[in-house]
Design a protein around this nucleic acid. Structure first.
Lengths: 121, 121
DNA sequence: GAAACAACTTAGCCCGTGCTAAGTTTCGAG
DNA sequence: CTCGAAACTTAGCACGGGCTAAGTTGTTTC
């Protein structure tokens, strides 16, 4: 969850300048209460900073995580498109897959997009 | 979890003839207590049948789920190998990825393994 | 400036998934 | 046949992540 949240927060900030809890409520389609709880946990874990009724900002650690997550997400998504998956499905699937893709697999995806599929031994 | 469990149960049965809780304890590296709880939930959900101190069997529904999961898992794993990921990583990553791969993406993977990568428009 | 509305928090609940500790059942060896 | 070890269950706890309901704060609009 943490990764998804920091990614969404970074996105909101880059789009609107700030991120409010309500942006996350809409993004994840959960209640304000849930977002409030989750943000507390993120703050406890040093990923975000916020004060009651104030916008949410990312710490350095949070920004790092967001960047990595966003990158991962994009690689997976474009890879899926590249192997012929539709826009809609690529977007959906990459959301879930990104959290389970190791660096090695990520590199393999990039390689395939650049050089095509490896020779079949 | 349900998918992982039925898959592991099916595996144990095909290897040893029966599946005992202790097999799952070893497989998932959790305690007996945890397995016991989880099995109760699976039974509640109609995926397995068991009685106290007895082996665990799959219902028709459980078998169906196990077969689908196993198939998915294998497609993802061999696909990863095919794009140049190592055995170890392919095994690890496919474990997590399989739960997030839609039918469409699965088809795309199979297609790529058969026909190579689609032309880049 | 007060009232209404939107944003947010807090309390209290539920379930899943993990644990430890303690007790029960089963089973094989002696 | 008994006893000890292995397998299993049960109770009780914790945390994550979801909810509703109710209250608080901030902002806009008249």
């Amino acid at each position: 969850m943490a990764e998804d949240y920091v990614e969404a927060i970074a996105e909101a900030i880059s789009e609107n300048g700030i991120c409010r809890a309500v942006d996350l409520v809409r993004h994840f389609d959960v209640t304000h209460a849930t977002v409030s709880n989750t943000i507390s946990r993120l703050q406890r874990d040093g990923l975000v900073v916020t004060e009651p009724y104030q916008p949410i900002t990312l710490t350095a650690k949070g920004k790092r995580m967001a960047t990595k997550a966003r990158n991962r997400h994009e690689v997976v998504r474009t890879f899926l498109l590249r192997i012929g998956v539709s826009e809609t499905t690529a977007t959906e699937d990459s959301e879930g897959i990104e959290h389970h893709v190791s660096d090695e697999t990520l590199r393999a995806m990039k390689r395939v997009m650049k050089d095509g599929i490896p020779a079949s031994d």
